[in-house]
Amino acid sequence: MQSFRQHTGQAVPLDRVNVDTDQIIPKQFLKSIRRTGFGDYLFDAWRFLDEGDLGMTPNERAINHDFVLNAPQFQGASILLARDNFGCGSSREHAVWALQEYGFQVVIAPSFADIFYGNCFKNGLLPIVLEENIIQELFQLAVDGLELTVDLEAQTVRLADGTAHGFDIAPGLKEKMLSGMDDIAMTLAGREQIEHFEAGHRESQPWLFSRI
């Protein structure tokens, strides 16, 4: 996983609550057995007017010019401003892969759904929770173009005029993002601890170990 320390980029406002992972990456694209190739289909049913399928490229699609991600001023945006409960629904990690591949490095919302939030940290996409009123302010500013600098170490989102909004993040998750260390390697570093637990677990609930 890539580590995340600091990022400066343009914000694009996606003004909808409860954006579910079926919208972020529709199911027809989950048939791929790879981790890549999803960026072209991010928000597929909103970005395009025609029905998409794996293998299609954006230049052969009917663009929905009313959708904010297609507006000329937001091309190249790398910070997604979202509303409450972003990423709800299906556990598909493809949603995070699609956001990253499209070019997003940060998602800022008043709240996230649990599974999506966890999936972000497995891939180096930084989800930031800010208070509703601050988000509202950022939404208004973003319409005219808004550059933000996200500093994970300092836990701040900074505007070009120097205004900074602090955000909370669990220390363990912050550490994981900063280090970018392989999650499995980190867990396996404590292999003895798992083996010790497992031996005790086998003793107390042997029926859990009786399958052939």
Binding site: S91, E93, I115, G118, I184, L188
Partner: peptide
Amino acid sequence: QGVGTSEVEHVMATQCLVQNKA
């Protein structure tokens, strides 16, 4: 619990899930 694919791989390799209590 439902998990993402990275967590699927993590459980395959370690029999554990990295998680903070709800």
